[in-house]
Design a protein around this nucleic acid. Structure first.
Length: 565
RNA sequence: CGGGGUGUAGCACAGGGGUAGUGCGCUCGGUUCGGGACCGAGAGGUCGUAGGUUCAAAUCCUAUCACCCCGACCA
Protein backbone atom coordinates (compact mmCIF):
# COMPACT_ATOMS: atom_id res chain seq x y z
CA UNK A 1 0.00 0.00 0.00
CA UNK A 2 1.20 3.46 -0.83
CA UNK A 3 1.47 6.10 1.86
CA UNK A 4 -1.09 8.32 0.18
CA UNK A 5 -3.72 5.57 0.56
CA UNK A 6 -3.32 5.23 4.29
CA UNK A 7 -5.02 8.40 5.56
CA UNK A 8 -2.10 9.14 7.84
CA UNK A 9 -2.86 12.63 9.09
CA UNK A 10 -0.54 15.51 9.73
CA UNK A 11 1.54 14.00 12.48
CA UNK A 12 2.51 17.03 14.51
CA UNK A 13 -0.38 18.82 16.17
CA UNK A 14 -2.12 16.46 18.53
CA UNK A 15 -4.49 17.56 21.31
CA UNK A 16 -2.87 17.68 24.73
CA UNK A 17 -5.73 15.83 26.37
CA UNK A 18 -4.54 12.62 24.82
CA UNK A 19 -2.91 11.40 28.01
CA UNK A 20 -2.22 7.71 27.78
CA UNK A 21 0.83 6.89 25.68
CA UNK A 22 -1.16 4.49 23.57
CA UNK A 23 -3.81 7.15 22.93
CA UNK A 24 -1.26 9.79 21.99
CA UNK A 25 0.61 7.46 19.64
CA UNK A 26 -2.52 5.96 18.13
CA UNK A 27 -3.69 9.46 17.19
CA UNK A 28 -0.34 10.66 15.94
CA UNK A 29 0.46 7.56 13.93
CA UNK A 30 -2.95 7.67 12.31
CA UNK A 31 -4.40 4.44 13.73
CA UNK A 32 -7.59 6.02 15.02
CA UNK A 33 -9.61 9.19 14.85
CA UNK A 34 -11.90 10.53 17.55
CA UNK A 35 -15.46 11.22 16.46
CA UNK A 36 -17.00 12.08 19.80
CA UNK A 37 -16.61 11.38 23.47
CA UNK A 38 -15.65 7.73 23.75
CA UNK A 39 -16.27 7.02 20.08
CA UNK A 40 -13.41 6.29 17.69
CA UNK A 41 -13.06 5.19 14.12
CA UNK A 42 -10.18 3.02 12.94
CA UNK A 43 -8.09 4.22 10.01
CA UNK A 44 -6.24 1.85 7.66
CA UNK A 45 -3.13 1.39 9.81
CA UNK A 46 -5.10 0.72 13.00
CA UNK A 47 -7.63 -1.45 11.23
CA UNK A 48 -4.94 -3.64 9.71
CA UNK A 49 -3.45 -4.26 13.15
CA UNK A 50 -6.93 -5.13 14.45
CA UNK A 51 -7.37 -7.61 11.62
CA UNK A 52 -4.08 -9.28 12.56
CA UNK A 53 -5.22 -9.56 16.17
CA UNK A 54 -8.59 -10.94 15.07
CA UNK A 55 -6.81 -13.47 12.85
CA UNK A 56 -4.80 -14.78 15.79
CA UNK A 57 -7.91 -14.96 17.97
CA UNK A 58 -9.80 -16.91 15.30
CA UNK A 59 -7.01 -19.43 14.88
CA UNK A 60 -6.73 -20.09 18.57
CA UNK A 61 -10.47 -20.25 19.20
CA UNK A 62 -10.92 -22.70 16.36
CA UNK A 63 -8.05 -24.76 17.68
CA UNK A 64 -9.85 -24.86 21.04
CA UNK A 65 -12.93 -26.29 19.31
CA UNK A 66 -15.16 -23.21 19.39
CA UNK A 67 -17.48 -22.36 16.47
CA UNK A 68 -17.83 -18.83 15.20
CA UNK A 69 -21.27 -17.19 15.04
CA UNK A 70 -22.48 -13.65 14.55
CA UNK A 71 -25.37 -12.36 16.62
CA UNK A 72 -27.14 -9.09 15.88
CA UNK A 73 -26.20 -5.95 17.75
CA UNK A 74 -29.90 -5.41 18.50
CA UNK A 75 -31.51 -7.78 20.96
CA UNK A 76 -35.23 -8.05 21.71
CA UNK A 77 -35.68 -6.79 25.27
CA UNK A 78 -37.93 -9.75 26.16
CA UNK A 79 -34.94 -12.08 26.13
CA UNK A 80 -33.08 -9.81 28.50
CA UNK A 81 -36.04 -9.51 30.81
CA UNK A 82 -36.08 -13.28 31.29
CA UNK A 83 -32.57 -13.23 32.71
CA UNK A 84 -33.56 -10.58 35.25
CA UNK A 85 -30.48 -8.58 34.31
CA UNK A 86 -32.38 -6.09 32.17
CA UNK A 87 -33.50 -4.02 35.14
CA UNK A 88 -30.05 -3.90 36.70
CA UNK A 89 -28.09 -2.99 33.62
CA UNK A 90 -28.37 0.64 34.60
CA UNK A 91 -25.91 2.89 32.87
CA UNK A 92 -24.68 0.14 30.62
CA UNK A 93 -28.05 -0.26 28.97
CA UNK A 94 -28.74 1.35 25.63
CA UNK A 95 -32.38 0.53 24.97
CA UNK A 96 -34.97 2.04 22.66
CA UNK A 97 -38.34 1.36 21.05
CA UNK A 98 -39.15 1.11 17.39
CA UNK A 99 -42.30 2.54 15.83
CA UNK A 100 -44.27 -0.62 16.48
CA UNK A 101 -43.45 -0.29 20.18
CA UNK A 102 -41.00 -3.20 20.34
CA UNK A 103 -38.19 -2.60 22.77
CA UNK A 104 -34.59 -3.42 21.93
CA UNK A 105 -31.29 -3.52 23.75
CA UNK A 106 -28.12 -2.50 21.93
CA UNK A 107 -26.05 -5.45 23.14
CA UNK A 108 -23.56 -4.67 25.90
CA UNK A 109 -22.76 -8.41 26.15
CA UNK A 110 -24.41 -11.52 24.73
CA UNK A 111 -25.04 -14.13 27.43
CA UNK A 112 -28.80 -13.69 27.05
CA UNK A 113 -29.17 -13.99 23.29
CA UNK A 114 -26.66 -16.83 23.00
CA UNK A 115 -28.34 -18.77 25.79
CA UNK A 116 -31.67 -18.21 24.05
CA UNK A 117 -30.18 -19.44 20.77
CA UNK A 118 -28.71 -22.55 22.38
CA UNK A 119 -31.88 -23.18 24.39
CA UNK A 120 -33.99 -23.41 21.27
CA UNK A 121 -31.51 -25.72 19.52
CA UNK A 122 -30.30 -28.30 21.99
CA UNK A 123 -32.50 -31.21 23.06
CA UNK A 124 -30.25 -34.00 24.27
CA UNK A 125 -26.99 -34.51 26.12
CA UNK A 126 -25.72 -35.63 22.73
CA UNK A 127 -25.85 -32.00 21.56
CA UNK A 128 -23.31 -31.01 24.22
CA UNK A 129 -20.66 -29.82 24.85
CA UNK A 130 -20.89 -26.76 22.65
CA UNK A 131 -18.73 -23.67 22.55
CA UNK A 132 -19.72 -20.65 20.42
CA UNK A 133 -17.82 -17.43 19.90
CA UNK A 134 -18.08 -14.22 17.94
CA UNK A 135 -16.04 -11.11 17.28
CA UNK A 136 -18.25 -8.11 17.12
CA UNK A 137 -19.02 -4.64 18.41
CA UNK A 138 -20.51 -4.08 21.83
CA UNK A 139 -22.26 -0.96 23.01
CA UNK A 140 -22.16 0.39 26.53
CA UNK A 141 -23.19 3.78 27.73
CA UNK A 142 -19.99 4.25 29.72
CA UNK A 143 -20.35 7.02 32.28
CA UNK A 144 -16.78 8.08 31.70
CA UNK A 145 -14.85 6.87 28.68
CA UNK A 146 -11.12 7.12 29.36
CA UNK A 147 -7.64 6.80 27.95
CA UNK A 148 -8.57 6.79 24.28
CA UNK A 149 -9.33 3.34 23.04
CA UNK A 150 -8.95 1.69 26.49
CA UNK A 151 -12.49 2.50 27.63
CA UNK A 152 -14.95 3.48 24.91
CA UNK A 153 -18.71 3.44 24.39
CA UNK A 154 -18.41 1.12 21.44
CA UNK A 155 -15.72 -1.52 21.39
CA UNK A 156 -14.80 -4.75 19.72
CA UNK A 157 -15.13 -7.86 21.80
CA UNK A 158 -14.44 -11.50 21.27
CA UNK A 159 -17.02 -13.24 23.40
CA UNK A 160 -17.33 -17.00 23.79
CA UNK A 161 -19.89 -19.15 25.58
CA UNK A 162 -19.55 -22.80 26.54
CA UNK A 163 -22.40 -25.16 27.39
CA UNK A 164 -21.82 -28.48 29.14
CA UNK A 165 -23.79 -31.29 30.73
CA UNK A 166 -21.91 -31.11 34.01
CA UNK A 167 -19.26 -29.43 36.14
CA UNK A 168 -16.49 -31.67 34.82
CA UNK A 169 -17.24 -30.66 31.26
CA UNK A 170 -17.21 -27.01 32.28
CA UNK A 171 -13.82 -27.48 33.89
CA UNK A 172 -12.47 -28.94 30.65
CA UNK A 173 -13.86 -26.12 28.51
CA UNK A 174 -12.70 -23.48 30.95
CA UNK A 175 -9.20 -24.94 30.81
CA UNK A 176 -9.27 -24.96 27.00
CA UNK A 177 -10.22 -21.29 26.93
CA UNK A 178 -7.55 -20.45 29.49
CA UNK A 179 -4.95 -22.05 27.27
CA UNK A 180 -6.31 -20.40 24.11
CA UNK A 181 -6.15 -17.00 25.82
CA UNK A 182 -2.64 -17.67 27.00
CA UNK A 183 -1.53 -18.41 23.45
CA UNK A 184 -3.41 -15.46 21.95
CA UNK A 185 -1.82 -12.87 24.23
CA UNK A 186 1.59 -14.48 23.95
CA UNK A 187 1.41 -14.45 20.17
CA UNK A 188 0.38 -10.79 20.26
CA UNK A 189 3.63 -10.05 22.07
CA UNK A 190 2.07 -8.98 25.35
CA UNK A 191 3.63 -9.28 28.77
CA UNK A 192 0.68 -10.29 30.93
CA UNK A 193 -0.36 -12.12 34.05
CA UNK A 194 -3.44 -14.08 35.06
CA UNK A 195 -5.12 -13.14 38.31
CA UNK A 196 -8.04 -14.49 40.29
CA UNK A 197 -10.88 -12.03 40.03
CA UNK A 198 -14.20 -11.00 41.44
CA UNK A 199 -17.19 -12.50 39.67
CA UNK A 200 -19.02 -9.20 40.12
CA UNK A 201 -22.44 -8.64 38.62
CA UNK A 202 -22.07 -11.58 36.24
CA UNK A 203 -22.36 -13.94 39.16
CA UNK A 204 -20.94 -17.43 38.94
CA UNK A 205 -18.36 -19.44 40.78
CA UNK A 206 -14.95 -18.60 39.53
CA UNK A 207 -13.26 -16.15 37.26
CA UNK A 208 -9.81 -15.11 36.20
CA UNK A 209 -8.59 -11.96 34.52
CA UNK A 210 -5.76 -11.56 32.04
CA UNK A 211 -3.96 -8.38 33.00
CA UNK A 212 -1.34 -6.32 31.21
CA UNK A 213 0.84 -4.17 33.42
CA UNK A 214 0.95 -0.61 32.12
CA UNK A 215 0.73 2.85 33.67
CA UNK A 216 -2.59 3.82 32.11
CA UNK A 217 -4.74 0.86 33.06
CA UNK A 218 -7.82 1.20 35.21
CA UNK A 219 -7.32 -1.79 37.47
CA UNK A 220 -4.86 -2.80 40.13
CA UNK A 221 -3.22 -6.13 40.74
CA UNK A 222 -1.73 -7.24 44.05
CA UNK A 223 1.28 -9.53 43.91
CA UNK A 224 3.97 -10.79 46.26
CA UNK A 225 7.42 -12.25 45.83
CA UNK A 226 6.10 -15.57 47.05
CA UNK A 227 3.93 -15.72 43.92
CA UNK A 228 0.59 -14.54 45.28
CA UNK A 229 -1.39 -12.84 42.52
CA UNK A 230 -4.92 -11.42 42.65
CA UNK A 231 -7.00 -8.52 41.49
CA UNK A 232 -7.15 -5.78 44.11
CA UNK A 233 -10.92 -6.33 44.17
CA UNK A 234 -10.46 -9.66 45.93
CA UNK A 235 -6.86 -9.66 47.16
CA UNK A 236 -6.56 -10.67 50.81
CA UNK A 237 -3.90 -10.03 53.39
CA UNK A 238 -2.46 -11.90 56.35
CA UNK A 239 -3.53 -10.86 59.85
CA UNK A 240 -0.90 -8.40 61.06
CA UNK A 241 -1.85 -9.37 64.65
CA UNK A 242 -1.86 -5.78 65.89
CA UNK A 243 -1.94 -5.13 69.64
CA UNK A 244 -3.85 -2.10 70.81
CA UNK A 245 -1.45 0.47 72.27
CA UNK A 246 -2.18 1.84 75.72
CA UNK A 247 -4.63 4.74 75.45
CA UNK A 248 -3.72 8.13 76.91
CA UNK A 249 -6.22 7.60 79.67
CA UNK A 250 -8.57 10.34 78.59
CA UNK A 251 -12.19 9.31 78.19
CA UNK A 252 -14.00 9.77 74.85
CA UNK A 253 -14.78 13.44 74.39
CA UNK A 254 -17.25 15.10 72.04
CA UNK A 255 -16.07 18.01 69.94
CA UNK A 256 -17.81 20.20 67.37
CA UNK A 257 -17.35 19.54 63.67
CA UNK A 258 -19.98 21.72 62.03
CA UNK A 259 -20.65 20.56 58.49
CA UNK A 260 -17.47 18.49 58.45
CA UNK A 261 -18.50 15.05 57.25
CA UNK A 262 -15.66 13.61 55.29
CA UNK A 263 -12.39 12.23 56.55
CA UNK A 264 -10.64 14.66 54.27
CA UNK A 265 -12.38 17.71 55.75
CA UNK A 266 -11.72 16.67 59.33
CA UNK A 267 -8.08 15.68 58.91
CA UNK A 268 -7.39 18.98 57.19
CA UNK A 269 -9.21 21.15 59.71
CA UNK A 270 -7.95 19.46 62.88
CA UNK A 271 -4.54 18.29 61.62
CA UNK A 272 -5.25 14.64 62.41
CA UNK A 273 -3.72 11.77 60.47
CA UNK A 274 -6.30 9.82 58.47
CA UNK A 275 -4.86 6.62 59.94
CA UNK A 276 -5.91 7.87 63.41
CA UNK A 277 -9.54 8.01 62.35
CA UNK A 278 -12.13 5.27 62.42
CA UNK A 279 -14.31 5.36 59.37
CA UNK A 280 -17.73 3.96 60.20
CA UNK A 281 -19.79 2.72 57.28
CA UNK A 282 -23.37 1.57 57.60
CA UNK A 283 -24.49 -1.31 55.39
CA UNK A 284 -27.71 -3.23 55.00
CA UNK A 285 -26.86 -6.94 55.20
CA UNK A 286 -29.84 -9.09 54.19
CA UNK A 287 -32.11 -6.26 55.30
CA UNK A 288 -30.46 -5.53 58.68
CA UNK A 289 -28.19 -2.60 59.43
CA UNK A 290 -24.58 -3.31 60.42
CA UNK A 291 -21.54 -1.08 60.86
CA UNK A 292 -18.15 -1.68 59.29
CA UNK A 293 -15.03 0.00 60.68
CA UNK A 294 -11.88 0.75 58.74
CA UNK A 295 -9.16 3.30 59.31
CA UNK A 296 -9.54 6.72 57.69
CA UNK A 297 -6.89 5.99 55.08
CA UNK A 298 -8.46 2.70 53.94
CA UNK A 299 -11.40 1.74 51.80
CA UNK A 300 -13.91 -0.90 52.78
CA UNK A 301 -14.18 -3.83 50.41
CA UNK A 302 -17.80 -4.95 50.16
CA UNK A 303 -17.15 -8.41 48.82
CA UNK A 304 -14.71 -9.19 51.66
CA UNK A 305 -17.18 -7.75 54.18
CA UNK A 306 -19.94 -9.88 52.71
CA UNK A 307 -17.76 -12.94 53.18
CA UNK A 308 -17.03 -12.10 56.82
CA UNK A 309 -20.74 -11.57 57.50
CA UNK A 310 -21.85 -14.59 55.58
CA UNK A 311 -24.53 -12.35 54.07
CA UNK A 312 -26.24 -12.94 50.75
CA UNK A 313 -27.04 -9.35 49.97
CA UNK A 314 -25.03 -6.36 51.03
CA UNK A 315 -25.47 -2.75 50.08
CA UNK A 316 -24.65 0.66 51.49
CA UNK A 317 -27.41 2.07 53.68
CA UNK A 318 -29.22 5.14 52.41
CA UNK A 319 -29.56 8.40 54.34
CA UNK A 320 -32.78 7.37 56.07
CA UNK A 321 -31.43 3.99 57.15
CA UNK A 322 -28.26 5.62 58.49
CA UNK A 323 -30.32 8.05 60.54
CA UNK A 324 -32.34 5.18 61.95
CA UNK A 325 -29.28 3.11 62.83
CA UNK A 326 -27.10 5.88 64.27
CA UNK A 327 -29.50 8.66 65.17
CA UNK A 328 -27.47 11.10 63.10
CA UNK A 329 -27.38 12.25 59.50
CA UNK A 330 -24.83 10.89 57.04
CA UNK A 331 -21.29 11.77 58.02
CA UNK A 332 -21.30 11.45 61.78
CA UNK A 333 -21.48 7.69 62.45
CA UNK A 334 -19.18 6.13 65.03
CA UNK A 335 -18.94 2.78 66.86
CA UNK A 336 -19.38 4.09 70.44
CA UNK A 337 -22.84 3.31 71.75
CA UNK A 338 -24.07 1.82 68.46
CA UNK A 339 -26.89 -0.72 68.90
CA UNK A 340 -26.25 -2.57 65.64
CA UNK A 341 -23.56 -5.25 65.08
CA UNK A 342 -20.11 -3.73 64.49
CA UNK A 343 -17.44 -5.38 62.32
CA UNK A 344 -13.94 -3.96 62.56
CA UNK A 345 -11.00 -4.35 60.26
CA UNK A 346 -7.83 -5.75 61.87
CA UNK A 347 -6.28 -2.29 61.53
CA UNK A 348 -8.68 -0.86 64.12
CA UNK A 349 -7.03 -3.03 66.80
CA UNK A 350 -3.85 -1.07 66.23
CA UNK A 351 -5.09 2.41 67.16
CA UNK A 352 -5.80 4.00 70.52
CA UNK A 353 -7.24 7.51 71.02
CA UNK A 354 -8.90 7.46 67.64
CA UNK A 355 -11.22 10.10 66.20
CA UNK A 356 -14.61 9.03 64.91
CA UNK A 357 -18.22 10.15 64.53
CA UNK A 358 -20.31 10.81 67.64
CA UNK A 359 -23.66 9.64 66.17
CA UNK A 360 -24.85 13.20 66.55
CA UNK A 361 -25.14 15.94 63.95
CA UNK A 362 -22.02 18.13 63.68
CA UNK A 363 -20.17 16.22 66.43
CA UNK A 364 -17.22 13.83 66.48
CA UNK A 365 -15.51 11.95 69.32
CA UNK A 366 -11.83 11.85 70.22
CA UNK A 367 -9.89 9.50 72.53
CA UNK A 368 -11.84 6.47 71.31
CA UNK A 369 -10.14 3.13 71.91
CA UNK A 370 -11.28 -0.30 70.83
CA UNK A 371 -11.98 -2.77 73.66
CA UNK A 372 -12.50 0.00 76.18
CA UNK A 373 -15.10 2.22 74.49
CA UNK A 374 -16.67 -0.29 72.13
CA UNK A 375 -16.38 -3.99 71.39
CA UNK A 376 -16.80 -5.21 67.82
CA UNK A 377 -18.93 -8.25 67.05
CA UNK A 378 -16.01 -9.58 65.00
CA UNK A 379 -12.76 -8.43 63.45
CA UNK A 380 -11.36 -9.45 60.10
CA UNK A 381 -10.00 -8.38 56.74
CA UNK A 382 -12.64 -6.07 55.29
CA UNK A 383 -10.69 -3.44 53.38
CA UNK A 384 -8.95 -3.22 50.02
CA UNK A 385 -5.30 -4.22 50.28
CA UNK A 386 -2.62 -1.56 50.12
CA UNK A 387 1.01 -1.49 49.09
CA UNK A 388 3.06 -3.14 51.81
CA UNK A 389 0.33 -5.29 53.38
CA UNK A 390 1.38 -8.78 54.42
CA UNK A 391 0.89 -11.34 51.69
CA UNK A 392 -1.77 -13.91 52.65
CA UNK A 393 0.73 -16.73 52.05
CA UNK A 394 2.88 -15.18 54.78
CA UNK A 395 5.78 -14.59 52.40
CA UNK A 396 6.70 -10.95 52.10
CA UNK A 397 4.65 -7.88 51.32
CA UNK A 398 2.03 -7.17 48.68
CA UNK A 399 2.81 -4.82 45.82
CA UNK A 400 0.13 -3.10 43.75
CA UNK A 401 0.61 -2.45 40.06
CA UNK A 402 -1.64 -0.59 37.65
CA UNK A 403 -2.94 -2.92 35.01
CA UNK A 404 -5.28 -3.13 32.09
CA UNK A 405 -7.74 -5.98 31.78
CA UNK A 406 -7.63 -7.54 28.32
CA UNK A 407 -9.41 -10.82 28.92
CA UNK A 408 -11.76 -12.34 31.47
CA UNK A 409 -12.98 -15.91 31.84
CA UNK A 410 -15.90 -17.05 34.01
CA UNK A 411 -17.50 -20.24 35.23
CA UNK A 412 -21.12 -19.14 35.24
CA UNK A 413 -23.01 -22.30 36.16
CA UNK A 414 -26.73 -22.37 35.49
CA UNK A 415 -27.70 -18.78 36.20
CA UNK A 416 -28.62 -17.91 32.62
CA UNK A 417 -29.54 -21.35 31.36
CA UNK A 418 -32.16 -21.67 34.10
CA UNK A 419 -33.71 -18.22 33.81
CA UNK A 420 -33.74 -18.08 30.03
CA UNK A 421 -34.22 -21.80 29.47
CA UNK A 422 -31.42 -23.87 27.98
CA UNK A 423 -32.33 -27.43 28.97
CA UNK A 424 -31.34 -30.87 27.75
CA UNK A 425 -32.40 -34.44 28.52
CA UNK A 426 -29.65 -36.52 30.12
CA UNK A 427 -28.99 -40.25 29.70
CA UNK A 428 -31.85 -41.06 32.07
CA UNK A 429 -34.28 -38.79 30.27
CA UNK A 430 -34.24 -36.17 33.03
CA UNK A 431 -34.45 -32.51 32.13
CA UNK A 432 -31.43 -30.48 33.24
CA UNK A 433 -30.03 -27.00 32.79
CA UNK A 434 -26.86 -26.70 30.76
CA UNK A 435 -23.77 -25.56 32.66
CA UNK A 436 -22.35 -22.41 31.20
CA UNK A 437 -19.07 -20.57 30.99
CA UNK A 438 -18.31 -17.25 29.32
CA UNK A 439 -15.07 -15.79 28.06
CA UNK A 440 -14.31 -12.30 26.79
CA UNK A 441 -11.42 -10.46 25.15
CA UNK A 442 -11.29 -6.71 24.55
CA UNK A 443 -9.89 -6.78 21.04
CA UNK A 444 -9.08 -3.09 20.75
CA UNK A 445 -7.54 -3.17 24.20
CA UNK A 446 -4.95 -5.57 22.83
CA UNK A 447 -4.08 -2.82 20.39
CA UNK A 448 -3.76 -0.23 23.15
CA UNK A 449 -1.86 -2.60 25.44
CA UNK A 450 0.55 -3.49 22.66
CA UNK A 451 1.40 0.17 22.12
CA UNK A 452 1.75 0.74 25.85
CA UNK A 453 4.30 -2.06 26.03
CA UNK A 454 6.06 -1.58 22.71
CA UNK A 455 7.11 2.01 22.09
CA UNK A 456 9.97 4.41 22.57
CA UNK A 457 10.32 8.20 22.43
CA UNK A 458 10.02 8.17 18.63
CA UNK A 459 6.91 6.07 18.30
CA UNK A 460 5.46 2.60 18.07
CA UNK A 461 7.53 -0.59 17.78
CA UNK A 462 5.06 -3.14 16.43
CA UNK A 463 5.64 -6.79 17.26
CA UNK A 464 5.86 -8.61 13.93
CA UNK A 465 2.77 -10.74 14.56
CA UNK A 466 0.32 -7.86 14.62
CA UNK A 467 2.15 -5.09 12.73
CA UNK A 468 -0.07 -3.40 10.12
CA UNK A 469 2.70 -4.03 7.59
CA UNK A 470 5.82 -6.16 7.71
CA UNK A 471 8.03 -3.71 5.84
CA UNK A 472 8.10 -0.02 4.98
CA UNK A 473 9.99 1.25 1.95
CA UNK A 474 11.39 4.76 2.28
CA UNK A 475 12.80 6.65 -0.67
CA UNK A 476 15.35 9.34 0.00
CA UNK A 477 14.89 11.98 -2.70
CA UNK A 478 11.90 10.44 -4.41
CA UNK A 479 12.22 12.83 -7.37
CA UNK A 480 15.42 11.08 -8.44
CA UNK A 481 14.44 8.55 -11.16
CA UNK A 482 17.05 5.95 -10.19
CA UNK A 483 15.84 5.93 -6.62
CA UNK A 484 12.20 5.76 -7.61
CA UNK A 485 12.74 2.93 -10.10
CA UNK A 486 14.70 0.84 -7.60
CA UNK A 487 12.06 1.39 -4.93
CA UNK A 488 9.22 0.52 -7.32
CA UNK A 489 11.00 -2.72 -8.23
CA UNK A 490 11.45 -3.68 -4.60
CA UNK A 491 7.82 -2.78 -3.91
CA UNK A 492 6.55 -4.97 -6.76
CA UNK A 493 8.84 -7.81 -5.76
CA UNK A 494 7.77 -7.75 -2.09
CA UNK A 495 4.11 -7.76 -3.07
CA UNK A 496 4.72 -10.65 -5.46
CA UNK A 497 6.36 -12.51 -2.58
CA UNK A 498 3.25 -12.00 -0.48
CA UNK A 499 4.91 -9.60 1.94
CA UNK A 500 2.80 -6.75 3.29
CA UNK A 501 4.56 -3.54 2.48
CA UNK A 502 3.94 0.15 3.05
CA UNK A 503 5.61 2.39 0.46
CA UNK A 504 6.38 5.93 1.55
CA UNK A 505 6.44 7.42 -1.94
CA UNK A 506 6.00 11.01 -0.82
CA UNK A 507 8.36 13.60 -2.17
CA UNK A 508 9.34 14.70 1.34
CA UNK A 509 12.66 15.45 2.92
CA UNK A 510 14.56 12.48 4.30
CA UNK A 511 14.26 13.59 7.92
CA UNK A 512 10.50 13.87 7.70
CA UNK A 513 10.17 10.40 6.24
CA UNK A 514 12.56 8.77 8.71
CA UNK A 515 10.75 10.30 11.65
CA UNK A 516 7.34 9.34 10.34
CA UNK A 517 8.55 5.78 9.74
CA UNK A 518 9.78 5.54 13.33
CA UNK A 519 6.48 6.94 14.59
CA UNK A 520 4.35 4.53 12.59
CA UNK A 521 6.64 1.74 13.75
CA UNK A 522 6.64 -0.87 10.97
CA UNK A 523 9.18 -3.53 12.09
CA UNK A 524 11.53 -3.31 9.09
CA UNK A 525 12.43 -0.21 7.08
CA UNK A 526 14.04 -0.47 3.64
CA UNK A 527 15.79 2.81 2.85
CA UNK A 528 16.41 3.44 -0.84
CA UNK A 529 18.74 6.37 -1.53
CA UNK A 530 21.36 7.49 -3.99
CA UNK A 531 24.21 7.10 -1.53
CA UNK A 532 23.81 3.34 -1.15
CA UNK A 533 22.42 2.81 -4.61
CA UNK A 534 25.76 3.97 -6.02
CA UNK A 535 27.23 0.79 -4.53
CA UNK A 536 24.23 -1.26 -5.64
CA UNK A 537 22.89 -1.43 -2.08
CA UNK A 538 19.86 -0.49 -0.01
CA UNK A 539 19.65 -0.23 3.77
CA UNK A 540 17.48 -2.34 6.01
CA UNK A 541 16.77 -0.99 9.46
CA UNK A 542 15.18 -2.83 12.34
CA UNK A 543 12.77 -0.50 14.11
CA UNK A 544 13.13 -2.12 17.51
CA UNK A 545 16.92 -2.43 17.70
CA UNK A 546 17.76 0.44 15.38
CA UNK A 547 20.39 -1.75 13.73
CA UNK A 548 20.99 -0.90 10.08
CA UNK A 549 22.61 -3.12 7.48
CA UNK A 550 23.39 -2.69 3.80
CA UNK A 551 21.97 -5.31 1.48
CA UNK A 552 22.69 -5.76 -2.22
CA UNK A 553 19.76 -4.60 -4.33
CA UNK A 554 20.27 -7.46 -6.80
CA UNK A 555 20.19 -10.04 -4.07
CA UNK A 556 17.05 -8.51 -2.63
CA UNK A 557 15.27 -8.60 -5.98
CA UNK A 558 16.35 -12.03 -7.16
CA UNK A 559 16.78 -14.12 -4.08
CA UNK A 560 13.57 -14.89 -2.21
CA UNK A 561 15.51 -16.17 0.77
CA UNK A 562 17.04 -12.73 1.29
CA UNK A 563 13.53 -11.28 1.18
CA UNK A 564 12.22 -13.67 3.73
CA UNK A 565 15.03 -13.13 6.15
C1' C B 1 -26.16 12.88 37.98
C1' G B 2 -22.98 16.94 40.75
C1' G B 3 -18.72 20.41 40.38
C1' G B 4 -14.86 22.86 37.41
C1' G B 5 -12.75 24.11 32.62
C1' U B 6 -12.72 24.87 27.28
C1' G B 7 -15.31 26.00 22.45
C1' U B 8 -11.72 31.49 17.56
C1' A B 9 -8.64 28.85 10.14
C1' G B 10 -7.50 21.68 8.56
C1' C B 11 -4.56 21.03 13.60
C1' A B 12 -2.56 23.41 18.16
C1' C B 13 -3.48 27.98 20.51
C1' A B 14 -3.36 33.66 21.71
C1' G B 15 -6.67 37.87 21.95
C1' G B 16 -11.01 39.92 25.51
C1' G B 17 -16.55 46.15 23.60
C1' G B 18 -14.49 49.62 17.83
C1' U B 19 -10.08 46.55 10.61
C1' A B 20 -9.76 38.67 12.89
C1' G B 21 -4.28 37.06 15.10
C1' U B 22 0.29 33.51 15.87
C1' G B 23 2.68 28.60 14.94
C1' C B 24 2.16 24.09 12.17
C1' G B 25 -0.28 22.39 7.76
C1' C B 26 -2.07 23.89 2.64
C1' U B 27 -1.18 26.61 -2.60
C1' C B 28 2.47 29.17 -5.89
C1' G B 29 7.75 30.75 -6.99
C1' G B 30 12.85 30.18 -5.67
C1' U B 31 17.15 28.17 -2.87
C1' U B 32 17.92 23.55 -0.43
C1' C B 33 17.80 18.01 -0.03
C1' G B 34 20.52 10.89 4.36
C1' G B 35 17.21 12.50 10.62
C1' G B 36 11.08 17.03 11.32
C1' A B 37 15.11 23.23 5.94
C1' C B 38 14.95 28.52 4.47
C1' C B 39 13.23 33.08 1.77
C1' G B 40 9.15 35.46 -0.68
C1' A B 41 4.00 35.64 -2.21
C1' G B 42 -0.96 33.68 -1.28
C1' A B 43 -5.68 30.91 -0.03
C1' G B 44 -8.54 29.82 4.25
C1' G B 45 -12.73 31.87 9.93
C1' U B 46 -20.62 34.86 9.82
C1' C B 47 -15.01 33.47 16.85
C1' G B 48 -20.09 26.32 19.09
C1' U B 49 -25.60 27.67 18.68
C1' A B 50 -29.87 30.87 20.06
C1' G B 51 -31.46 35.07 22.46
C1' G B 52 -30.34 39.71 25.17
C1' U B 53 -27.51 44.46 26.67
C1' U B 54 -25.04 48.35 23.52
C1' C B 55 -24.32 53.40 18.61
C1' A B 56 -21.10 49.01 18.26
C1' A B 57 -20.36 41.97 20.79
C1' A B 58 -15.51 37.01 19.22
C1' U B 59 -15.29 40.00 23.85
C1' C B 60 -20.52 41.55 28.70
C1' C B 61 -25.35 38.79 30.32
C1' U B 62 -28.87 34.46 29.86
C1' A B 63 -29.99 29.86 27.90
C1' U B 64 -28.49 25.71 25.22
C1' C B 65 -25.21 22.11 22.90
C1' A B 66 -20.44 19.72 22.48
C1' C B 67 -15.84 18.25 24.39
C1' C B 68 -12.13 17.72 28.56
C1' C B 69 -11.02 17.09 33.85
C1' C B 70 -12.60 15.77 38.94
C1' G B 71 -16.28 13.44 41.92
C1' A B 72 -20.57 10.28 42.59
C1' C B 73 -23.26 9.89 48.63
C1' C B 74 -14.86 7.19 51.32
C1' A B 75 -19.29 8.86 56.67
Amino acid sequence: MRWTQTLIPSLRNVPKDAEAVSHQLALRAGLIRQLSSGVYSYLPLGFRALLKIIGIIREEMNRAGASEILMPALHPAEIWKKSGRYETLGDDKLAFKNRAGHEFVLGPTHEEVVTDLVGTNIKSFRDLPLTLYQIQNKFRDEARPRFGVIRTKEFIMKDAYSFDTGEKGLDVNYRKMYEAYYRIFTRCGLNFQVVNADTGMMGGKMSQEFMVICPYGEDRVASSEGGYLASQDIAERANPGLKTPAPSGAAPEVFDTPNLRTIDEITRKFKIKASQMIKTLIYMADGKAIAALVTGDSEANESKLRKLLGAKELRQADGEEIREATGAPVGFAGPVGLKIPVYADWDILGIADAVTGANEKDKHLKHVTIGRDFTPTATGDIRFVKDGDLSPDGKGALKLTTSMEIGHIFKLGTRYTESIGAYFLDEKGERKSAIMGCYGIGVNRILAATIEQHHDAKGIQWPAAIAPFAVEIITVNHAEPKVREAAEKIYAELIAAGIEVLFDDRDERAGVKFNDADLVGIPKQIVVGERNLAQGNVEIKDRKTGITQAVSLDALLKDRSVLNS
